[in-house]
Simulated assay, not measured.
Amino acid sequence: MNPILDVVVRSLCVYLFMVVAIRLFGKNQLSQLNAGDVVLLLLISNAVQNAMVGQDTSLQGGLIAALVLFAANFIVKRLMFSNRKFESFLEDDPVILIKDGVIDEKALDEVKISKEELQEAIREHGVDGTKNVKLAILEVDGNISVVSEDEKSKQTNYSRIKRKNKRKYLR
């Protein structure tokens, strides 16, 4: 096989494998990484590097592999934008955790978030307790968005804070 075509095919195979693996093992950790996640990503990148370029360790081989990864990512993003089924395969839907001050225990259990973690997220948004939460949603990126209502002015407030410690969840 042509060495350049070999790098292209290998890179595409590794890219597709990584997309599926991230989907299966939880992707929400990728927006903010802890030390274990960084180590895992470094080890995975080292493990798949040879699988992508094979015997071609030249600058050309590395650049071709990188170009293929960028192109594959661009195509996947376009497919997600144009095809709802493909998007729902790669990304989970947001999960409602609190509605009108009532915690959805089943949803918390499903996404593996404890009540204490939920309370912490609510406090991070500056809301005093679940009774003042109109809506709390676990977004597809692992962040929790909170819509609250000010008791005095009856004005609805929305806030979204990037969580330091995201929780993985599988469906």
Rank of each mutant, 00 (worst) to 15 (best):
N2L: 15
P3C: 01
I4Y: 12
D6R: 14
V8E: 01
V14H: 00
F17E: 05
A21R: 07
I22P: 01
R23H: 10
R23C: 09
R23A: 07
L24N: 09
L24W: 14
G26P: 06
G26K: 09
K27C: 07
Q29V: 14
Q29S: 13
Q29K: 15
L30N: 07
S31C: 04
G36P: 02
G36F: 12
G36D: 04
G36I: 08
D37Q: 09
V38E: 11
V39R: 02
V39F: 06
V39H: 03
L43G: 13
N46M: 14
Q49Y: 12
A51K: 04
D56A: 05
D56E: 08
S58I: 01
L59S: 01
L59C: 00
G61L: 02
G62I: 04
A65F: 00
A66Q: 10
L69Q: 10
A71Q: 11
A71W: 12
N73F: 06
N73V: 03
F74N: 13
I75H: 01
K77Q: 12
K77W: 01
S82D: 05
R84Y: 10
K85A: 13
K85S: 14
E87C: 10
E87T: 05
E87L: 05
F89S: 00
F89E: 00
L90T: 06
D92V: 11
D92T: 14
P94F: 00
V95Q: 05
I96K: 12
I96A: 15
G101N: 08
V102C: 08
I103C: 01
D104M: 07
E105Q: 13
K106F: 08
K106H: 11
L108Y: 00
L108W: 01
D109S: 15
E110P: 01
E110G: 07
V111S: 04
K112W: 11
I113F: 10
K115R: 15
E117F: 08
L118W: 04
A121F: 08
I122F: 02
R123A: 05
G129D: 01
T130M: 13
K131P: 00
L135E: 10
I137S: 03
E139F: 02
V140A: 14
N143Q: 07
S145C: 00
V147Y: 14
S148W: 03
E149C: 11
E149R: 13
D150N: 15
D150I: 14
K152Y: 03
S159K: 06
R160T: 08
R163I: 08
N165T: 09
K168S: 15
Y169N: 10
R171I: 11
